[in-house]
Amino acid sequence: MLITNVRAHHIRIPYEAGVASFKQGASAIAAVDIVLVEVSTDTGLTGWGDAWGYVCPQTTSTAIDEMIAPQARGLEVPDAAGIPAFMDRIQRNLHLFGRYGITMFAISGLDIALWDLAARVKGEPLHRLIGACRRARIPAYASLLRIGDPALVANECEAALRRGYPAIKLHETTVPPVFAARQAVGTGIPLMVDMNCPMDEAAATAFAQACRAAAPLFLEEPVWPPEDFKALAAVRAKGGLAIAAGENACTVYQFRQMMTEGAVTYAQPSVIKVGGITEYLKVAALADAMGVKLAPHSPYFGPGFLATLQLMSLRDDGTFIEIFYMNRAACLWRGRIDIDAKGSIAVPEGPGLGYEPDNEIMERYRVS
């Protein structure tokens, strides 16, 4: 079976997030951009991947068209055992363009699609191709966008609990919203705080110490720059809170640096950034070997989310899957990744990633 084409599809689905906002520079973002990666074969079988493209979907799409497609087109589709060597060759061929960022996002999309294909060839779900399923449903946490105002944060936390979420993550960089959230949800609900890399070591340490009484499960990415693992380790040692990081890390090599420094309690590989399923599995194995917990990054709604569900089903470590807390105009999977009354999502049992993207939704929200 040969790869006949690799194609990027840019899908933009509007959302409404109420009092929350998400900004990149001066521009407010009101839609989720998904860069689907379609790998076609000469047998008619198709695999679907997902490449990180928030705020830069056209750039990621161009990387797939100009760098990834020429590398893969015309080659034999590897089976599961052959995917790591296949992807290693592509990483080597493209290393001049960088081992992180856009290049690795595009590589991630191809890798996920190849794993999808490998499982589809076998006619089984991805998790069964890799190992034994230990969880049929994955509990989810509501990943709130940044709000700022403590009273509004408390209201959104209460609303998320009413919708069934068993845990909540904030995106706040001041102390009062953290305590407002804790008061709103009570002591029995896991609460996490994602900061998105705003502070130096001293400020992040002070923030962690100030938040200790609110008992967050972890403080996520408090330090700028995110690759300053020595500073992150210092915040972990002196701040009194568990530290999570890794959504901005690509490949197992950067995670090894992070873990060797003792920088994290929770490693957060993002399957559509880290290098795909191949690198994710390496990170998971490394985390287990080094006694680091896993808390995957997954605030997206394309094939990468399905891949994360499949991968998390292989572990019975009680981790949550991350879901952006927003109301989307549509879903590529026709609502099958919505949480149930207990705040969990079923792991797909269909071949490959489990579901086919809805073609009608793709065409309705396609960006030319």
Score class of each variant (00 low, 15 high):
Ala8Tyr: 05
Ala26Asn: 10
Ala26Thr: 12
Ser27Ala: 14
Ala30His: 07
Glu38Val: 13
Asp42Gly: 12
Asp42Ser: 06
Thr46Met: 04
Trp48Thr: 05
Trp48Arg: 01
Ala51Gln: 00
Tyr54Ala: 11
Tyr54Gly: 01
Val55Tyr: 08
Gln58Cys: 12
Ser61Phe: 04
Pro70Lys: 14
Gly74Tyr: 10
Gly82Phe: 12
Ala85Asp: 14
Phe86His: 02
Phe86Met: 06
Met87Tyr: 06
Ile90Asn: 07
His95Phe: 14
Tyr100Gln: 13
Thr103His: 07
Phe105Pro: 02
Ile112Ser: 02
Arg135Trp: 09
Ile138Pro: 00
Ala140Glu: 04
Tyr141Ile: 11
Leu145Thr: 11
Asp149Ser: 09
Leu161Gln: 07
Gly164Ala: 03
Ala167Phe: 09
Ile168Lys: 04
Leu170Asn: 09
Thr174His: 09
Val175Ile: 14
Val175Leu: 10
Pro177Gly: 11
Phe179Ile: 06
Ala181Arg: 02
Arg182Gln: 08
Gly188Thr: 06
Cys197Lys: 09
Glu201Lys: 04
Ala203Ile: 00
Ala214Asp: 04
Ala214Cys: 09
Ala215Asn: 12
Ala215Tyr: 05
Phe218Trp: 15
Glu221Cys: 12
Val223Arg: 01
Val223Ala: 01
Val223Met: 00
Ala231Phe: 01
Val235Asp: 01
Asn248Glu: 13
Gln254Thr: 15
Gln257Met: 14
Met258Glu: 14
Gly262Asn: 13
Thr265Lys: 10
Ala267Thr: 14
Ser270Gly: 15
Ile272Gly: 01
Tyr280Gln: 06
Ala285Ser: 15
Ala295Gln: 02
Arg336Gly: 07
Ile337Lys: 06
Asp340Asn: 15
Pro348Glu: 02
Leu353Tyr: 05
Tyr355Leu: 13
Pro357His: 08
Asp358Asn: 10
Arg364Asn: 04
Arg364His: 06
